[in-house]
Simulated scan of single mutants.
Amino acid sequence: MADVAAAAGVSGQTVSRVVNGSPRVDPETRTRVERAMADLGYRPHRAARALRTGRTDTIGLVVSTLATVGNSRMLQAIADSAARGGLALTVVTASGRDAVGDAFARLHDQGVDGAIVLNEATALARTVAVPAGLALVVVDSPPDERYTAVQTDHAAGAHAATTHLLELGHASVRHLRGPEGSFAAAERERGWRSALAQAGVAAPEVLRGDWSAASGHRAVAALPADATALFAANDQMALGALRALAEAGREVPGDVSVVGFDDVADAADFRPPLTTVRQDFDALGAAAVAALVARIAGERPAGTILVPELIVRASTAPPRG
């Protein structure tokens, strides 16, 4: 640090302010210091800084699985946002109540400044004690004083998808639901039911899947012949549904219109291109990291709810006749 200060013609305190992101440095001086750091190959020593500040600039991520597309997209978004903020990321998978408690304990022992809990793991996280001093943000969860909740408005997205199908003239809409215990799946079912009730349509029996394309294929293989519209709770299950319908000789959207949820990267390349509800994973990840940084600083930020967008493509159309 002394070498950087000498090369930049500033004090050691100024170099320290630049390294720690202090706003109390004018832009010209900051640029000069950063140039000297680059020229000299200076890198802050994270462990030494932790001893001084009491923070490691490391955050944790607790997730039940990375096999689902949504969780993988969220991991990427959170990792990108953390990197932009100069934060390291530690990922822990946990699939049961005790496993989530152990994950919290391990992260706390590793000295992380805070943690983000993702999707299916949130229901488990609500039932375990959070170690004292561990700042916590939960993605997809009801509000709780122990943490800040960040979520997509899943119910609003499902309502928009179902309303779109009803407005095309379909008498009813079947729903392919996500797994039990998932906050997102429950909210999407709630939005579907709300749209049907608003239109005065009785909700038919729910089809059940587990987020995978295979589960969508299995569930939709038994879709009644009089069903003309299907709202799948995610794009992967919608993909399986498209295959099942094709194998049954039912055209999409001629015989059955299909809507998914998430707008994964390949959704526009499904056959036909999939009408779906777009989640902004990048914005969701950035909101989660920003809320966690605020909680680490001792603040109590309000929760964030992001409204998704209906993307209409070729998999939906009015019913025949």
Rank of each mutant, 00 (worst) to 15 (best):
P224F: 04
Q236F: 07
A221N: 04
S215G: 13
D210V: 12
A222E: 02
D226F: 05
T228M: 08
D210I: 05
V201M: 00
A197P: 08
D226K: 00
A195H: 06
A199Q: 13
W192R: 05
D210G: 08
A214K: 01
R193C: 12
R193T: 11
A199Y: 12
A233V: 04
F231M: 12
D226Q: 07
R208Y: 06
D210N: 14
L223N: 01
L196Q: 11
G200R: 09
R208G: 07
V206A: 01
G200F: 12
D226E: 15
S194F: 03
A233G: 13
R190D: 13
S215I: 09
A238V: 14
A238N: 13
L230C: 01
A203S: 15
G209F: 05
H217V: 04
G216Y: 03
D235V: 14
N234V: 14
N234I: 15
A202E: 15
G240K: 09
E205Q: 03
L239Q: 07
S212I: 04
A203T: 14
P204F: 12
R218Q: 06
M237H: 11
N234E: 12
R193H: 11
D226Y: 07
N234M: 11
A214D: 15
N234Y: 08
L239H: 11
W192H: 15
A199E: 08
Q236Y: 07
S215L: 06
R190C: 11
F231D: 09
L223W: 02
L196P: 14
G240C: 10
L239D: 05
S212P: 06
A232E: 10
M237L: 10
V201C: 04
W211I: 00
F231T: 08
A221M: 03
A229F: 01
G200D: 10
H217Y: 09
D226P: 06
L207R: 02
A197Q: 14
A203R: 04
A232P: 05
Q198S: 14
M237S: 11
S215V: 07
Q198M: 09
A203M: 05
A225S: 14
A213G: 01
A238M: 12
F231R: 01
V206Y: 02
A222T: 03
A214T: 13
A213Y: 02
